[in-house]
Design a protein around this nucleic acid. Sequence first.
DNA 1: ACCTCGTCCTGGTTGC
DNA 2: TGCAACCAGGACGAGG
Length: 263
Amino acid sequence: MRRRLAPVLEGRTLERVEIHDARLTRPKDPLLVAVELSGERVTELDRRGKYLIVRFASGRALLIHLRMTGSLLRDPVEASHLRARLLLDDGTTVAYRDVRRFGTWFLLEPGELEPYLDERLGEEPLVAAFTAKGLGERLHGRRAPLKAALLDQRTLAGLGNIYVDEALWYAKLSPLRPAGTLDRSELQRLHRAIRKALELGIARQGSTLSDYRLPDGSSGTMQREFRAYGRTDEPCDRCGTPLEKIRAGGRGTWFCPRCQTLP
DNA sequence: ACCTCGTCCTGGTTGC
DNA sequence: TGCAACCAGGACGAGG
């Protein structure tokens, strides 16, 4: 999303902003936020974890989280559930669509962004500084199942329900394994697996299960690559054993009961 | 400090 | 066919 939207937004000035859903900017007044945003010039579209960061020349930033069903669409031909619109100085409109209205737009003043993100997010898994050793340190002493620990954004930033299941399948680790009990070689596998799952997801431009769309309205294709997520009773791509669905970390969780056993 | 669970929403699917 | 129950790419706050 960031890669596709950056060329649309960077260098543009917001001529007008409309926010139709009061939930979006809560607790701030959406009208006030809309007025404050208009006239801002976008310097950079950035990302941290699952947050999109629209940086402005003024030093302020708009922090966007799409949650489950949010999409940002460039000049949509037709779309329901539109919650906000950015009207740019080149005539382009960027519309925000969100069926379930869980998404958020927070306007942050200079200096507010870093502390806000730092208290919510751990390391970025795709930077060079992220190592198997570092992963081990993040998981050390934790008794929560791997599934729950990896969904926690303070462990690592950016893994969601799909990518945790995919990564655990690649790593041949049970989602129910206590997070602090992995040995060095298991940490090595998990580290590689997390990167593989995320890199494939980015290459395929995300998973469209129902609502997710790219800015041009097209669908992501990561759902074609799923090895575990959503594949109840389908044969494991490694061993042929039917995949199972359980509840772990409060979420639907798919895994291979033969490849991903508890020790 | 860590961990689990309910909640915020809307709409699609499943089962009786 | 009709209708209720359940489920869904996430994060946060309450409570154990």
